[in-house]
């Protein structure tokens, strides 16, 4: 990939900002980490919804699944029996050394990622036969069902939830640790998707979005592409879930792990707000959304959720193309979109 000096400078600036931000605003480390997670949410949703035209309302499933897998692995790694631990409803406090903690976290995150990929492959084969609205409702159903079922599963603490092992060091060090997990993860997601969209894969999933029946008619292995797209979303979502569970310190099915009507719908709103089907759109949308949300949320005294509903409606009804989509329509040439044929080059055959 050849990047112009200008683009390189922009990337470098983002990296520098990302690194210094938690030191400049030490009180907001959690919110800053959340910003990276939100960007990851929007990016991974857009792989399916924007680039491939499969509008999932249930991507949050992988977030929750990763969170639970990671939590269970961490507890087991610390040498506790998970069933016994959850039976005590948090009365037992898990004390671990640094080595144990990092070991458990690392193995937990790896298994969370792999587990979610596996889930994506299995579910993909089941739900990819559903098209259009059925896919959206079906994935919503899977995410809701997961939340409800985990809530009745005593092994992982049921509706009461499960507390992850405590970080052995200072709270500030813990915040920084998780910030510096979220930040590179979001960067990795972005870089991976940037690369992915530049390969054949990107064009193929765009073709599926534009006309899946035609794509099938041209012999494209549609199921293979769809599964890989979903699995890569699941991979990053799984890791982010594992990290988020530790940031919160407590994993609970409905509000933390499978929050379908909060994070689950935020993903969609952020990608749409920024402009779906573009690489930077979701990043932009997530940033704008997160900043607005963090600055206004607490002042709205309960009306924030009403505002969220209104935002979704206005976004989808009046401003569906999103910020970047709008900019592309306005200045197509700047985005490398041609509106007129060129007369240079060869003559018509």
């Amino acid at each position: 990939m050849n990047l112009s000096p200008k683009t390189l400078a922009a990337y470098a600036a983002i990296l520098v900002c990302g690194i210094v931000a938690p030191f400049l605003f030490p009180n907001y480390t959690f919110q800053l980490a959340m910003l990276w997670i939100m960007i990851l949410f929007a990016l991974t949703w857009d792989t399916m919804g924007g680039q491939m035209g499969y509008n999932s309302l249930g991507n949050i499933f992988f977030f929750g699944a990763g969170m639970y897998i990671c939590a269970v692995v961490q507890i087991a790694w610390a040498g506790y029996d998970v069933a016994e631990y959850t039976a005590h409803f948090g009365a037992v406090k898990i004390e671990v050394t640094y080595a144990q903690y990092y070991g458990g976290l690392m193995v937990g995150l790896i298994l969370a990622a792999l587990g979610c990929v596996l889930f994506a492959i299995v579910f993909g084969h089941i739900v990819f036969g559903l098209r259009g609205p059925y896919f959206a409702i079906g994935t919503l159903g899977v995410a809701l069902a997961a939340g409800e079922l985990v809530g009745t599963w005593d092994y992982v603490g049921g509706g009461g939830g499960i507390t992850v092992p405590f970080y052995p060091g200072e709270p500030d060090a813990r915040s920084l640790l998780y910030y510096f997990l979220c930040f590179p993860l979001a960067i990795a997601t972005f870089s991976f998707l940037k690369w992915l969209y530049s390969t054949r894969f990107g064009l193929a999933i765009n073709a599926i979005r534009d006309d899946e029946e035609k794509a099938e008619g041209m012999g494209i292995h549609t199921l293979r592409y769809k599964t890989i797209a979903w699995a890569s979303s699941a991979f990053f979502l799984g890791i982010s879930g594992g990290i988020f569970g530790n940031m919160v310190g407590f994993v609970e099915p409905l509000e933390v792990a499978f929050p379908t009507v909060t994070f689950g719908i935020f993903m969609v709103v952020m990608a749409l707000l920024g402009g779906k089907g573009t690489l930077w759109g979701p990043v932009l949308g997530a940033t704008v959304f997160h900043i607005i949300k963090e600055t206004t949320w607490t002042y709205m005294l309960g009306w924030q959720w009403v505002a969220l509903g209104a935002l979704i409606i206005i976004n989808i009804v009046f401003f569906q193309q999103g910020i970047l989509g709008w900019a592309q329509e306005k200045w197509p040439e700047r985005f490398g979109i041609k509106v007129e044929g060129d007369d240079s080059g060869r003559e018509a055959g």
Partner: peptide
């Protein structure tokens, strides 16, 4: 039926044979 949001070259590229992919 074409892939209406992609440009012509992209439409062509994505149509390469997928037999031995």
């Amino acid at each position: 039926r074409i892939y209406s949001k992609m440009n012509c070259v992209e439409n062509m590229l994505v149509s390469v044979p997928h037999r031995r992919e």
